[in-house]
């Protein structure tokens, strides 16, 4: 689905969203009023430019449209891989972007992220996973690393990883695994204005992913560990 038809589907009442390179930014009409639309397209690799571009627009939004909900569209192949980016502390710019999303939350902006294409590692961490809730389209690809590369790095046979991936959501790519583990709230069969409006209406500012992961049977250890730390003498 092209970005334009995706926007038409999500926002039938209208949208004014510009694409600069691989950065998406603009405003759209959702069922409950105007929302800010921010994100990336075409499997963007997140470097300083995109991180600071998104961060600056978030700060403008907080200042100029207090409380306006945010829809993040996520299509990122991860972080930009270059020496020049690292030289200027790329992790710092991604952290800055994450802080801007966090500030928006604290200032009362609801936020929903929708993975429309890829969602990989650092790119995903910096804004998609910082939203109040994250959703994914059915054909989205969510991962840290594909199983072949993982087999090379961990020196565990590929066949063994494939076999284990059938029974465990812990390491293998796939939006369903992230849903079972609590990080993706739901997978949408297709883009839908009704689903988006429902998502915006239902967001919760707290981080409930550990509990969701336990309820869904995908992450059985973490929540109990947190409780044990809080109870430790």
């Amino acid at each position: 689905m092209s970005l334009h038809s995706l926007l038409d589907t999500l926002f039938p009442a209208g949208h004014a969203v510009a694409v600069e390179g691989k950065l998406i930014a603009g405003t759209a009409q959702a069922g409950d009023g105007p929302v800010a639309v921010l994100g990336t397209t075409d499997a963007a690799a997140i470097g300083h430019d995109i991180a600071l571009g998104l961060a600056g627009r978030l700060l403008d939004l907080i200042e100029q449209h207090p409380g306006r909900p945010i829809v993040f569209l996520v299509d990122t192949s991860g972080q930009a891989l270059s020496r020049a980016e690292e030289l200027l502390c790329l992790n710092g710019s991604l952290a800055h972007l994450a802080r801007c999303v966090d500030l928006a939350r604290r200032q009362g902006h609801r936020s929903v992220a929708l993975v429309t294409g890829q969602a990989v590692s650092g790119g995903f961490l910096s804004f998609g996973l910082m939203a109040d809730q994250t959703f994914a389209l059915a054909d989205a690809q969510v991962r840290v690393m594909d199983l072949k590369a993982m087999a090379r790095v961990t020196k565990i046979p590929h066949e063994r990883l494939v076999e284990l991936a059938g029974s465990s959501p812990t390491f293998a790519p796939g939006a369903e695994n992230y849903q079972r583990m609590g990080a993706i709230a739901a997978i949408w069969p297709q883009a839908s204005a009704a689903l988006l409006d429902a998502a915006l209406a239902g967001v919760d500012h707290g981080d409930t992913r550990l509990l969701a992961g336990r309820e869904r049977g995908g992450r059985m250890l973490g929540a109990a560990v947190v409780d044990a730390v809080l109870a430790a003498g």
Partner: peptide, 13 residues
């Protein structure tokens, strides 16, 4: 990487 999804989500948390 041995717990890639759990690790990524935990870092987000």
């Amino acid at each position: 990487l041995h717990e890639a999804n759990a690790g990524l989500i935990a870092i987000s948390e």
